[in-house]
Design a protein around this nucleic acid. Structure first.
Length: 305
DNA sequence: CTCCAGGCGCCTT
DNA sequence: AAGGCGCATGGA
């Protein structure tokens, strides 16, 4: 099997064109990472994960110490994928910055190998505008419809249908509000439409905000319609690489109240202050562990001692 | 049927 | 400044 795969090193050096590659990835729970509410387009199929990154359909599989990738078209430079998967991140180094308390230990223990991905800013922004007051299954459905109708068909199949890209802002900017509403996004349609228009006309530079200090980047994002503090923080964290950004949503409120405040009544403001000061320089990463832990522990983990 | 889901923006105090 | 409420849609 290994002979038909190229290693990262040979790829980079020899520019070998291949549809397959393997990447060293220890302590990487691919399933949890793709299914922890940070991305919405991955489908589990035949023990692998089918998805689209940029304009490439890709199937991912993992074993104990590697992630295997298969694309439809040959690839010479796999950085688009290793960046996305954050293969080079020193996870242990991040985990070491988490506070050493019982809830955090339990979350880390229950979610071994959970990672943050590095998404395209536009797809991330649009996806989270669509996320408000929706459950993850529904967010997935809205995004699937949006891609099917306004994305571009790509080489490769997903569940028997042509794979498609996430629609570019210019395309959504040309949509009517009615067309967007037909993707079942309801009152979020005008937000997405106006944000797409502003991004398309260049009044917001989505590739520039990553270079700004986090507070300025957040302020820029929050100028967009449909983007408040929570969604801005999601984009900062999942696309901007700001691992201190800490999106406070109802799950995290619940988690913090239960795990750190013994379900006492605590105001949002106090919880936010706690979140900003307690979890250290990679607070957003810690947030993802708490979030995933809360969402899955009933099935996988007994209650805290 | 009612309730509510990873919010935001606008309108009240 | 802080809190209440409407906004679509679909599943429990």
């Amino acid at each position: 099997m290994s002979s038909s795969f190229s290693s990262v090193a040979t790829c980079a050096e020899a520019r070998v064109l291949s549809c397959r590659a393997a990447f060293p990835a220890r302590d990487y729970d691919l399933a949890a990472s793709l299914n922890s509410g940070q991305v919405f387009r991955w489908l589990s199929q035949d023990g692998g994960w089918q998805g689209v990154i940029g304009r490439r359909a890709v199937c991912l599989r993992s074993d104990a110490d590697r992630i295997w990738a298969e694309t439809t078209e040959p690839v010479s430079d796999w950085r688009w994928l290793t960046d996305y998967l954050q293969c080079d991140l020193d996870l242990g180094g991040v985990l070491a910055t988490f506070p050493d308390d019982a809830p955090m230990r339990a979350a880390v223990n229950a979610c071994r190998g959970l990672r943050l991905l590095r998404q395209e800013p536009w797809e991330c922004l649009a996806s989270f505008i669509l996320s408000s007051t929706k459950q993850i299954v529904q967010i997935r459905q809205i995004i699937a419809l949006l891609c099917e109708r306004f994305g571009e068909p790509l080489p490769g199949l997903t569940r028997g249908l042509p794979a498609c890209s996430f629609p570019i802002p210019e395309r959504l900017a040309r949509c009517s509000e009615t067309e967007l509403r037909a993707c079942k996004m309801g009152f979020r349609a005008p937000y997405l439409l106006e944000t797409a228009r502003r991004v398309a006309e260049g009044s917001v530079e989505l590739n520039r905000f990553q270079r700004l200090p986090v507070a300025e980047a957040r302020a820029e994002l929050m100028k967009l319609p449909g983007v408040g503090r929570k969604i801005a923080d999601c984009v900062l964290l999942f696309a901007g690489g700001f691992s201190s950004a800490f999106p406070v949503d109802v799950w995290i409120m619940k988690a913090l109240r239960e795990l750190y405040f013994s379900k006492r009544r605590v105001g949002t403001k106090r919880l936010r202050t706690f979140a900003e000061t307690h979890f250290g320089p990679h607070a957003g990463y810690a947030q993802q562990y708490l979030f995933h832990y809360m969402r899955t522990r009933r099935r996988t983990q007994p209650a805290l001692p």
